[in-house]
Design a protein around this nucleic acid. Sequence first.
RNA 1: GCCGGGGUGGCCUAGUUGGUUAAGGCGUCAGACUCAUAACCUGAAGAUCGCGAGUUCAACUCUCGCUCCCGGCACCA
Length: 552
Amino acid sequence: MGKRTLVTTAWPYANGPLHLGHLAGSCLPADIFARYNRMIGNETLMISGTDEHGTPVSMLAELEDRSPKEIVDEYHEIIKRSLQEVGCSYDIFTRTTTKNHRETAQEFFLRLLKHDFIYEKIMEMAYCPKCKKFLPDRYMEGECPRCGAEGARGDQCDECGRTLDIMELINPYCKHCGTKPEMRKSKHYFLRLTAFQDRLMSWIETNKDLWRPNVYNFTINWLKEGLEDRPITRDLEWGVPVPVKGKEDKVIYVWFEAVIGYISATKQYFAEEGKSEAWRVWWEDPDTETYYFIGKDNIPFHTIIWPAMLLGHGRLNIPTNVLGNEFLNLEGGKFSTSKNRAVWLNEYLKHFDPDPLRYYLSINMPESKDANFTWDEFQRRNNEELVSKLGNFAHRVISFIEKFHDGEIPKPEILDEKDLAMLKEIEISVDITGDSIQNCEFKKAIARVMKLASFGNQYFNEKEPWKDKATSKTTLYVSACIVRSLSILMAPFLPFSAQRLWIMLGYEHSVHEQRWDSAKVHVKSQPIRDVKPLFRIIQGEEIAEQRAKLDR
RNA sequence: GCCGGGGUGGCCUAGUUGGUUAAGGCGUCAGACUCAUAACCUGAAGAUCGCGAGUUCAACUCUCGCUCCCGGCACCA
């Protein structure tokens, strides 16, 4: 009875470790959504992988005098492991350099070619006679025609910020060998985007109320300006070869090829499960819903180009929703992999637990506007909210039971008005939190979880079980019901702590296997165990140490 | 220059079908409590919702102009 739900995240680029921006804008919201979908009984598949082709990887390889393969092998492992450690529950996290992906991408290319949605056209491009290769814009430098700065790149001058056409550079030279490039003709393949203009437009309009305004508006404006066909091949060595006889020296351009990873990853997952045809239902059955969690920089690729490719292919589902997030900033500035200005996830995990970060990024998620990560705020959110509000409530209830009720959750006696109101409040929180996640309003959802913890603290204070021995059993019973519910509601956001809390309450198995609505079920009278605080306080020195790294 | 997003109490943030006392957190001040990782709970002070004009019985919310901030402007994904 559950819906089939495919959840995808942006494919992290394998030229560096994963930083907090990727997590906040794509992996984490997708993970919360996927975990929730599993809990409401939807058949859920969460997929992604590293994007490993493209110019930045080959540039980094040259810089470090290593092969592109070595680079991507290293970062794929680092990224995959840190995602796993931070609790992102991918069913598969693959990469774009697999044989399966290459073949899938090539098949896709050929199919569009056959349908005449891909055609050839001659382009003029810069060529270095000494290196004997065509130069991507970034491989060429020269003098900026506007500000005169040396070392302006072919696509942009870093000095004055002006975007450049490669032809405009004064005294251009090959970044690699310094030779002056010449212009040469090269035949490339173009994606006939213009053929999809009308179909995309009417499709987008049907999504007006469902999609986030930023995604909808951005897309509709792009379409209104009119689509242009785009070249999708390059004269490079690092990439998926064009599968046409005599054209093997060209590669399919990354943005065209990487999105096909969504399909190749699905195929790979089911192939490994021994069900090689099972992927089809996830792409061909119109009842399957597909959700894409991406950063705003990726919006046009997922709302225009990828849908156009899917339409051109035929028979494949176009996105149900594209959740474009804004950016996470770092201490007021931008995250940047190439400038090494970032908080790296793998570094973070050496010092702190995953859940405080997941909490911070959930409650500060850049859903509708840019958000900010600061270490001070991270410490405050952890110490004052996770530890003091949520963790404290759970701990005060459980340790009270341990000390004053022989370590066993008491049976209720007479439920008074406050007790009943509190129990009712649990049900309301379960519904509101669930609906919010369903609508991809994750900030609102986690805020409601915290609010339930506040209600719990309030209730506990008012009932004063330490004084009022007569009603103490009932109070602790109701409180334990809240804690039990919290443990389930926390699960998509704080999977590790949720599980620990679940075990403390005396349950077996996994909280992640519980149905969402079972958060309304009352607690059973059973022994608690392993009582200890759920979260730890983060000291000022730890924060100072991390912040110092950024100043270097 | 063009396009997009944003300017809400000292700080961070919520607030789209326009409608009674603009919400929450932090910080500040006061109080209560002691089960709890000195945590929790209650109360108070504090906002002419960037500026100006317009539409309206009524605008933070719609329209126009202005100002300031941020991002994008395509082969970087």
